[in-house]
Design a protein around this nucleic acid. Sequence first.
DNA 1: TTTAAACAGGATAAATTTATCCGAAATAAA
DNA 2: TTTATTTCGGATAAATTTATCCTGTTTAAA
Lengths: 144, 144
Amino acid sequence: MFSKACEYGIKAAIYIAANSNEGKRVSLKGIAKHIDSPEAFTAKILQILARENIVTSVRGINGGFEIESHKLETIFLSDIVKAIDGDNIYKGCGIGLKDCNELHPCPIHDDFKKVRNSLRKLLETTHLKQLALNVHSGTSFLRV
Amino acid sequence: MFSKACEYGIKAAIYIAANSNEGKRVSLKGIAKHIDSPEAFTAKILQILARENIVTSVRGINGGFEIESHKLETIFLSDIVKAIDGDNIYKGCGIGLKDCNELHPCPIHDDFKKVRNSLRKLLETTHLKQLALNVHSGTSFLRV
DNA sequence: TTTAAACAGGATAAATTTATCCGAAATAAA
DNA sequence: TTTATTTCGGATAAATTTATCCTGTTTAAA
Ligand code: FES
Ligand code: FES
């Protein structure tokens, strides 16, 4: 469904959000450990999220990553997915036609569009705060 | 969503089905042309589908690929996807936890599961005949 | 000012996916 | 039997994704 990079990106963002919600900044090392991802590769992904103004990075001692608390409810999963994988997954044709076109539909268009739209809705309406709270309370998990 | 190989596989199967439904056998060359896919790569994918008894291949002059007509309504998209991409897409965790587990859910589990199940239902209830008929009647398309 | 911690980013490597090439085997028709 | 057609399958190559390494820059604390 999502690329590995995107999976790591989503998990990292949720982990950072869960900590930022408590005023804690987290390091790359801590992130990689808690989401069980390769450190250097995760760094690349966090660079993307930083460039897209989804996370804020701070260099130097006591540096790390954080998300400004007022953003926690305005960053949606779709923002992260779009930054890393693009929006083809919830906008493109299921079997690879150049574009998904009502007037020139592929054979699975009608049914696929419904699924794709429900994915789109999920991504576009789920923000980081809800996910972070569940992780913090121990209701959901980021690894294993 | 699906791999390129899987997209080609789905399109090829639908094209073969549309022709088999009329008693016509089609060649690799014809398939690749009509679904707009690389010929040699498509051959590999058709070999997989042949090994999985989804399509029947016939070598030699006037050879090609066909699907036994009694199978047209019992081969589902899920069979094709499973043969090529495996079933992780409609069974696995959305952000890559080892397995999707109710008792140890990831943060997007509850919402994602719904989407994933609707994809699963789509794949498991859509058989080749319905798709083939729409292509044949010009209601849907396999290329461009 | 020095030092250590931490991210940035370029270069490179490994793994996987996508794609091509070619000789072998099968088959029907000439 | 010969020939032309067509799939099979192994080898290889190209492209993309995933992952690692290493040097540089920033920053706070000692
Ligand atoms: S045209 Fe294929 S999903 Fe819309
Ligand atoms: S645990 Fe992630 S989708 Fe179920």
